[in-house]
Design a protein around this nucleic acid. Structure first.
Length: 607
RNA sequence: GCCCCCGUAGCUCAACGGACAGAGCAGCAGCCUUCUAAGCUGUUGGUUGUGGGUUCGAUUCCCGCCGGGGGCGCCA
């Protein structure tokens, strides 16, 4: 917002140091930490330390020398338009902006840009975010939800920051797990599925757990039990073989049940407001995969050991000339010629680069697969894809339960749909308690927004690499650092504006307001937070970290709540102050709405 | 054996190598005839696992150790 002023000052500092023979280290500007006034700040520690190291004979105390330079520079910079005063303190130079000017620019920009406030310039790069890759044929659990939310928010962030963004899903629609469900369905339950897409999905999950118990080895089995288990296992493996061979009966069964599962997934994605651009299916990746293996062997990257009964492998460490084992060896094709996860991922990456022309590729996958992705990225590099350097595995921690890690096979899961329904119930209970002035038919709609807001925010407010111990009371809490807290700030801003609009003389939406009265601390801090939104978008996108935005929006809401409590808007001292504050409220509302949008959380007008 | 992640208030988590390590929950004390109290204000609580190193400056970077989790040629 004051880039021009900052640049002007930086040039003055550079010119001064050049004239004085001071070897100025690159300047890093950041906001002044002590709130109350706006400004930017930079330090001279590095410059002083460089001088000390150069050793001019004089003994130098770095902080002292930094302060000395800061003072000299301060005197030299003098007056700059838009700047109220400059101070040199503790080795820093603090440049304070004129309050009224800063406030006006920040508020005007937020209101004028509206929904585009904070949007970055196009970066001319295409980015693909791959997320939401559940194994199909059973219901979506809360761990899948964390993945999908993280991926969607990341996609929104990079898109808003200026990247051309493609959203991709890669569901596991084939594999032994899928076949296991198919097997038990066909053998014992065919035609018994319940109505309703979620009921059906949950039912499939139930029989999956049952099937797993039937085919998994147990302690203390009797010989009869062992024989039974082995027979069942043989049956499902035979079914897998038939699928591979294109057996029409198995394929048809698979197509139908797969579609049930996809229906459920699409419904949940709709609930989460996720619109995928590209669907990759594991079942389709298989064929592609086998072709690339030949290419890798031909290029001398992979070694085909099938002649001696081995698989096709890439000795990554050896190829890179590493002596210590780091990337190890990756198997990219089974000895029987069937595809592995690695086969498919390599093929998919090639497709992303060549067919979708992506410059950057992000994989939102849990942390256990970090080795896998390091290997894949290294192979892509050996393969000669320059985009390999911009492949990134956004790894995140588990959502665990008090009983341990979630496992669909064992049935130790909390389903997204159940939590979502519970969330709505809890919000409705609070709503009726508060006997608000909300019309009955809108309550359900708002309850969805608030309930989902709570759930989504609880997933986003923890950094990626940390496990989340799922506690439904915490996830659906409405107090403190939560989604509803932020949504409530939006509601409050809206209610002020709504009331203001009832006044026929209310015109301030279209005019720039002067903030040339004495601003309260709350106004200053709120304006400061609003003005930081665009840079926060960039930071969150550059670091691929939704948490940065989650943190920011919460802080913004906190500033707004404090402001709301302490500063009267409609009963302001006079018309000028009232109009300025209304402008500020409108700017805050817009910024909160934009931030919530990036977090995939709805911003209701009433709650 | 090797590789990756984590260790910060009682609990759950923050903190581009910078100015006094911050929030929420829990606890304690206050605030609703006012723009909705899903809120606000105040307060209790820390040798940032540990020992070194780099640096003017380390929660942050490097090394060792302790503790927890994950992974390592035919699972995904």
């Amino acid at each position: 917002m004051f880039e021009k002023e900052q640049q002007l000052i930086e040039e003055k500092i550079k010119a001064y140091c050049a004239a004085k023979g001071i070897a100025l280290a690159p300047l890093k500007w950041s906001a002044i930490p002590f709130a109350g006034e706006w400004g930017t700040s930079t330090s001279f520690f590095q410059t002083a330390a460089d001088e000390a190291r150069a050793g001019t004979g004089k003994k130098i105390t770095v902080p002292q020398r930094a302060q000395e330079i800061a003072e000299q520079v301060k005197a030299e910079v003098g007056n700059v338009d838009g700047v109220s005063h400059i101070e040199a303190v503790k080795g820093y130079i603090n440049v304070y902006y004129k309050t009224s000017e800063y406030a006006r620019r920040a508020v005007d920009e937020a209101i004028t840009s509206g929904a585009n406030f904070g949007r970055g310039q196009p970066k001319g790069e295409r980015i693909m975010v791959e997320y939401s890759q559940p194994n199909l044929l059973h219901s979506f659990h809360i761990g899948h939800a964390r993945n999908t939310i993280l991926g969607e928010v990341l996609a929104r962030l990079v898109e808003f920051a200026g990247f051309e963004t493609i959203r991709a899903s890669y569901p596991g629609d084939m594999g032994l797990g899928v076949i296991t469900i198919l097997w038990i369905y066909d053998k014992f339950y065919k035609g018994q599925e319940p109505e309703g897409i979620h009921e059906r999905g949950q039912w499939l999950l139930k029989i999956y757990v049952e099937a797993t118990a039937l085919v998994e080895k147990k302690d203390n089995e009797t010989p009869e039990e062992t024989a039974q288990r082995e027979a069942y296992d043989a049956e499902r493996r035979e079914m897998l073989r038939k699928w591979e061979a294109g057996d029409e009966y198995v394929r048809e069964l698979w197509r139908v049940t797969r579609e049930w599962s996809l229906e459920e997934m699409r419904d949940i994605l709709r609930t989460l407001d996720v619109k995928m651009d590209v669907w990759f299916f594991e079942s389709e990746a298989n064929e592609l995969g086998k072709a690339i293996v030949d290419e890798l062997v031909a290029r001398g990257i992979a070694v085909d050991e099938r002649a001696t009964g081995g698989p096709v492998i890439v000795k990554i460490d050896e190829k890179l000339g590493l002596t210590r084992e780091k990337y190890r060896t990756m198997v990219i094709l089974r000895s029987d010629g069937t595809a592995l996860y690695s086969t498919n991922d390599l093929a998919l990456a090639k497709q992303k680069f060549e067919q979708y022309h992506v410059d950057r590729s992000i994989y939102v996958v849990d942390f256990r697969q970090s080795m896998h992705f390091q290997q894949v990225f290294k192979i892509l590099e050996l393969w000669g894809f320059p985009q390999a350097a911009k492949c990134y595995h956004l790894s995140y921690g588990y959502v665990t339960l008090p009983k341990g890690a979630m496992s669909s096979r064992r049935g130790n899961v909390v389903l997204f749909k159940d939590v979502y329904d519970e969330a709505i119930q809890r919000v409705l209970a609070v709503e009726s308690e508060r006997s608000g002035n909300v019309a009955e038919d809108r309550r359900k709609e708002i309850a969805k927004q608030i309930g989902l807001g709570a759930l989504v925010y609880s997933m986003l407010s923890v950094d990626n690499n940390k496990d989340i111990l799922f506690d439904i009371n915490e996830a659906l809490s409405f107090d403190g650092r939560t989604g509803p807290y932020i949504q409530n700030a939006h509601v409050r801003a809206n209610s002020i504006l709504k009331k203001a609009r009832q006044d026929p003389g209310y015109e301030s939406q279209n005019t720039s307001a002067a903030f040339d009265y004495e601003l309260t601390r709350h106004e200053i801090e709120l304006i400061e937070q609003i003005s930081r939104f665009p840079q926060t978008v960039q930071q969150a996108a550059n670091e691929y970290r939704p948490l940065v935005m989650a943190q920011y929006v919460y802080d913004l809401a906190t500033e707004f709540h404090s402001f709301y409590h302490a500063v009267p808007v409609l009963q302001g001292d006079n018309e000028k102050v009232k109009n300025a504050r209304l402008r500020l409220v409108a700017a805050a509302k817009q910024t909160i709405a934009n931030g919530l949008k990036l977090l995939d959380i709805q911003a209701p007008d009433v709650m």
